[in-house]
Amino acid sequence: MNGIPDAQVDPIVIEDVVRRHRGGRGIQGISLSVRAGQCIGILGPNGSGKTTLTHLVAGIEQADTGRASVFGQPARPRPAYLRRRCGVSLDTPALWDGLSGRQNLWYFVRQYGVRGSDLSRRVGELLGEADLAAQADDPVATYSFGMRRKLSVIQALGHEPDLLILDEPSAGVDTTFLDWLVRHIRTRCERGQATWIADNDADWLSRAATDAILLRDGRIRAEGSIAELMTSVQARSRIEILLEQDDWTEVPRIPGVTAFHCERNRIRAELNGGPRRAAELHTWIASRGGRIRRLEVRSLTLQDALVRQEGDHAAG
């Protein structure tokens, strides 16, 4: 036994892990595993335990009970050769403000053993992909929030890690970068590299991840592959209508309107069948004397699919 993990071992295995913070928050009894080539997206409201779970996987925090392992080794303490296989970008960018973006990136990429011309090329490529090339030699102190976030994310990608851990990568960054990041993560999946993303943007996550879990109050409430989850809400949409009058009581009998809820002057409904159903509902409300002030239709998202699954589980 030389301490080198088996290449066939799952990159992340979490078994019944509990980690409590002061004030009662944290995570309680979570079990999951991430295979090679998988990209798992962690969704959940603020305080649901996303960052705590990410810190456990990254080896920043230690579980109170249970087992968290990375490439078959305990997640913490993590030996240097295992840290080398991981790339981590935390929710708070840890940067040296007085130095330029290039200097910050250079230091981090070099620590993973990239040297010489490879290092120069890789740093240049990453700065270009993040659209930071023009500001690469400006002090980080002059960067906007989004630019700092992008720099933090590309720091984790510099050495093409076998396990990439990203906490809130979409916060404050532009869509061009997010599109590039989606393509990059897909390429990683094809290469058999694992990715862990904790984020609040379900739409973006549904494009980047292969699987998703919904955390709430420190527990996994729903989980599944993105394909399955998106199929469950495919061609479904949610409509929100604001009426001028606040005494609406009628419930429509229109095929395809699967849920209808009215509270004062606000109607919320779920439709099966796309924009045509929305038009039918609009016509029906108008025919009953309803005066519509605002109407908003949106497709159901990954977040909705997970919340629906959570509701189904709760209902037994």
């Binding site: 030389n2 301490g3 080198i4 290449a7 030996p79 240097a80 050769y81 080398r84 296989r85 620590q111 993973y112 053993g113 990239v114 040297r115 010489g116 011309s117 490879d118 290092l119 050495h159 093409e160 076998d162």
Partner: peptide, 22 residues
């Protein structure tokens, strides 16, 4: 400082012996 030569970090990780500290 600047060092000539290069090697890929991943090459020294997945091997049959523990890699050197850099």
């Amino acid at each position: 400082g600047m060092q000539k030569g290069s090697f890929n970090a991943r090459d020294i990780v997945i091997g049959d012996r523990a890699p050197m500290e850099v």
